[in-house]
Simulated scan of single mutants.
Amino acid sequence: MDTRVQFYHNTPDRLALACELVARAHGKGRKVAVRLPDTTSAQQLDRLLWTSEPLSFVPHVMLDSPLAAETPVVLGTADADADWPHGDTLFNLAPDLPPAFDRFRLVIEIVGQSEAEKVPARARWSAYRQRGLETKAFDAERRVAL
């Protein structure tokens, strides 16, 4: 299986976009792992997934939950054990290259607008390309392919 990689650049609100894209992926029947930089951002995304769409429900748990293997959306932090329960789609909001990213069918990188986020994203882009992976880029604010 060749992993495909998509970068969403120029994102004004990374958690809001992650919430939207995770909900969309779940709606299409995808199993999703979301790798966040820290516990605070994981808690914020957890709240967003509960409150973003009043009539929709995105079942999700933290990676350390006993229900992680049975839940379609799993949230984890960059410092947590990277033993994700499924390998369909990985959203990476952490600044580093996800360990074992190549066991996922699709990796989605969400990059903000600050230089502090762009610089490590460029390194991840290069790392994926050096491994011969197909990469695509999108401007998240203008909603167009680059």
Rank of each mutant, 00 (worst) to 15 (best):
S126D: 15
S126Y: 10
A69T: 12
K136E: 14
E70M: 10
A100N: 09
E134Q: 13
C19A: 15
R4Y: 14
Y8I: 13
Q6A: 14
P54I: 07
A140N: 08
T77S: 06
A69M: 07
V58D: 01
R131H: 10
L106D: 01
P12K: 08
V58E: 01
K28W: 06
F91T: 00
R103E: 12
F91L: 02
D2H: 14
R142G: 01
E141D: 13
V32H: 01
E117H: 07
Q113D: 11
E115R: 11
P66S: 12
A140Q: 04
H60V: 00
N92Y: 02
L55S: 13
A42P: 00
L48M: 12
E53H: 11
C19D: 05
A18I: 05
G132I: 10
T3D: 08
T11K: 04
V144W: 01
L75K: 01
A25Q: 02
D64M: 05
P85L: 11
F101C: 03
A137M: 11
G29R: 05
P54V: 14
V107Q: 07
E141M: 07
V107G: 04
H9A: 05
A82K: 01
L17S: 11
D96H: 14
A33V: 03
A137S: 15
D38W: 03
L49N: 02
P120L: 08
P99T: 09
T135A: 10
I108T: 14
D139E: 10
V74Y: 01
L93R: 04
E70V: 05
C19T: 15
A121P: 09
F57E: 00
I110D: 03
F7R: 06
V107W: 04
E109A: 09
G87Q: 15
A23Q: 07
L97W: 04
E141H: 09
R129S: 07
R4S: 15
V32W: 04
